[in-house]
């Protein structure tokens, strides 16, 4: 056998191997999108990470982090972020589950309800914050109604503190959690519940032993996405909270650094810290999630 045929054979097996592994010209279609991501997402992120180790004042490479963790006001922003994002995500998911369970079968007016729920999501946090600012004010309709109903005697103080931010995040986060949960719950084969009921399980047992375990993985994702949403709270924190006090969250800290001192190095350091915190929680949630059943929720072969 000559060397020439050998190499041709080699190249044909190589082509075969590539094809077997799904590598052919079709993959070129990914290139533009991947390039865009590499240039505008991966590169800036890497660049920002490196930048964060080159402080503006040319000090040591950990200087930004030392500053951040050395300053109790800065350091507390991590705590502030978690104090808002964790309970908000938990509340949203916990509220979404019973409502989604009730609405999992086609209810009359389902689409109307979904449409109304989608409005706060598409209006966005800025507008919700603007509206809440007046609505929750001591003279606003909320306090006025409660006082007229003699539930309270003095207006509730809900602005410029934790509660304003919390409420704004529930208004934009609950519909999101609900619609996600609903789509997960309607992905569960209704035959599962029928089978359980034939086997003697009442409504509560059906939920506890069948629906909830099948829903758990979806809830983990819902929680994570809500958490991500709540983690970048800065419009609501700035407008409704107390951005220099207990609403001084990571996002506010980062944007403050930019708008006050244009210190992109420090800002990058803070955004890196934010990302690490957020990813830690997501990884944790997914680790817990992997302990549950995560396969198909349709059941059987169907």
């Amino acid at each position: 056998m000559s060397a020439k045929t050998q190499s041709r054979e080699f190249s044909s097996t190589r082509r075969f191997w590539l094809k077997e592994h799904g590598i052919d010209s079709t993959l070129l279609l990914i290139v533009p999108a991947l390039l865009a991501m590499l240039v505008f997402f991966v590169y800036p992120t890497v660049y920002g990470t490196i930048l964060s180790f080159h402080p503006a004042n040319k000090a040591g490479f950990l200087e930004n982090y030392k500053t951040f963790f050395g300053d109790p006001y800065m350091r507390k922003s991590i705590f502030n972020t978690f104090r808002i994002a964790l309970p908000v995500s938990l509340v949203n998911v916990c509220l979404a589950v019973p409502v989604a369970v009730k609405m999992r079968h086609r209810v009359k007016g389902q689409r109307a309800i979904n449409t109304i729920l989608i409005i706060p999501i598409s209006l966005g946090t800025v507008l919700i914050a603007e509206g809440l600012y007046a609505y929750l004010s001591p003279n606003g309709w909320f306090n006025r109604t409660l006082m007229a109903a003699h539930i309270i005697h003095a207006p509730l103080q809900m602005l410029h503190n934790f509660w304003g931010v919390m409420i704004s995040l529930i208004i934009s986060g609950f519909p999101f959690a609900f619609l996600l949960t609903l789509s997960y719950i309607s992905g569960i084969n209704p035959k599962m519940e029928e089978a359980a009921s034939i086997l003697g399980a009442g409504p509560i047992q059906r939920f506890r032993f069948v629906t909830l375990p099948l829903l758990a993985p979806g809830l983990a994702i819902t929680f994570c996405l809500n958490f991500v949403l709540a983690f970048s709270v800065f419009p609501s924190a700035n407008l409704l909270g107390n951005p220099s006090g207990d609403s001084h969250v990571l996002a506010v800290a980062a944007t403050d650094v930019i708008s006050q001192s244009y210190d992109y190095s420090m800002a990058s350091a803070i955004s890196l810290i934010t990302a690490v915190c957020e990813i830690t929680v997501v990884v944790l949630v997914f680790a817990i999630r992997s302990r549950f059943y995560t396969g198909s929720t349709t059941g059987g072969k169907g």
Partner: peptide, 20 residues
Amino acid sequence: LPPERRGFGMVFQNYALFPH
């Protein structure tokens, strides 16, 4: 009576086994 109180057994077309 709701199905859970009839005490019947049922085999479903796609079996409806609990996947978890």
